[in-house]
Amino acid sequence: MGKLTADAIVDRALRVGDAEGLDAVTIRRLAADLGVTPMALYWHFKNKDQLLAGMADHLIAGFAPGEPGDRSWRERLREVMTGLIRVLRAHPCAKSVLEQVDQMTVPNFLAVWDEALGLARSAGFTVEESCLITKYLLQSAISIADAPVHFTACDSPEVVAEFVRVKRLGLESLPAATYPNLVEMAGPMIEVSPGLYDTFGVDLVLAGIEALADRR
């Protein structure tokens, strides 16, 4: 193979993490997959912590802040949240990576975080409120992307269909006199469109921030 690069290592690490979980991502495993000795990887990443930082930096690079242009703080804050959801959706291991990594060692994470803080401040929020907003945005994005309304690529159509059928039947079987709304909305409760789920969730979170900003 050609010269081993940090990008090639990180790309393989993400593939392994997505398929088998983050515990399967080890220097020895990656070296075997890439056909090199572990020492070849240590040249780029001295330990698992540095590898996690490289993985996180790669994940976030896709929506790290660029030139603001003439976009409003509302548009740019939406870009941050939707970008994070997109990454979490594309890589099943992304949540674990972001939870385990030392965020101070990830330049792209710091750049996104810094931008979000600045956007909140430009909207008129206090320092304390701006810090809370960035925390809420991160946790909301993780919750939206991690919702059980979405199914993994490993689930066959038959498995998904059976899961939906059983869950829907369970709600429809409840006493209608006691739980009229659950029974009536059993279908959309279980079979929410993933696209609608994501966009409405982002709208809901950002609408709250925008409403508070408008009171300033």
Rank of each mutant, 00 (worst) to 15 (best):
M1K: 14
G2H: 08
G2A: 10
K3T: 09
L4P: 00
D7L: 05
A8H: 06
A8F: 03
I9W: 00
R12E: 11
A13N: 10
V16P: 01
V16R: 10
A19D: 12
E20C: 09
D23Y: 05
A24F: 07
T26E: 01
A31V: 01
A32P: 00
D33W: 03
L34T: 06
G35K: 13
V36C: 11
V36T: 12
T37H: 13
T37G: 10
P38D: 14
M39G: 00
M39K: 04
M39H: 00
L41A: 04
Y42N: 07
W43C: 00
W43I: 02
H44K: 10
F45E: 09
K48R: 15
K48L: 06
D49K: 12
D49S: 11
Q50S: 11
M55C: 03
L59Q: 08
L59C: 05
L59E: 08
A61G: 03
G62W: 03
A64H: 10
P65Y: 13
E67L: 08
G69W: 03
D70E: 13
R71Y: 02
S72V: 03
W73V: 01
L77F: 03
R78H: 08
E79A: 14
V80Q: 15
G83Y: 05
I85W: 07
R86V: 04
R86I: 03
R89M: 15
H91T: 04
P92K: 08
K95G: 11
S96L: 14
V97Y: 03
L98Q: 05
L98P: 01
E99I: 06
D102W: 08
D102F: 07
Q103G: 14
T105M: 09
V106H: 04
P107T: 06
P107N: 08
N108L: 07
N108W: 05
F109C: 09
F109G: 09
F109W: 14
W113G: 15
D114E: 14
A116H: 05
A120G: 12
R121K: 10
R121G: 03
G124D: 05
F125Y: 07
T126H: 07
T126G: 09
T126Q: 09
V127I: 05
V127D: 12
E128H: 04
E129K: 09
L132I: 11
I133Q: 10
K135Q: 13
L137G: 09
S140V: 02
A141P: 02
S143I: 04
A145C: 03
A145F: 01
A145R: 08
D146I: 03
A147P: 01
P148M: 06
V149S: 07
H150V: 10
A153L: 10
A153D: 14
S156G: 05
P157S: 14
E158C: 05
V160S: 06
E162Y: 07
F163V: 11
R165I: 06
K167I: 02
K167N: 12
R168W: 06
L169D: 15
L171C: 07
E172M: 14
S173R: 15
V183H: 08
E184T: 02
E184W: 00
E184G: 00
A186V: 04
G187Y: 06
G187I: 05
V192I: 06
V192M: 10
P194S: 12
P194A: 12
G195I: 04
Y197I: 07
D198W: 00
F200Q: 13
V202W: 04
A207K: 14
A207F: 01
A207I: 01
G208P: 01
A211L: 13
L212H: 12
A213G: 05
D214F: 02
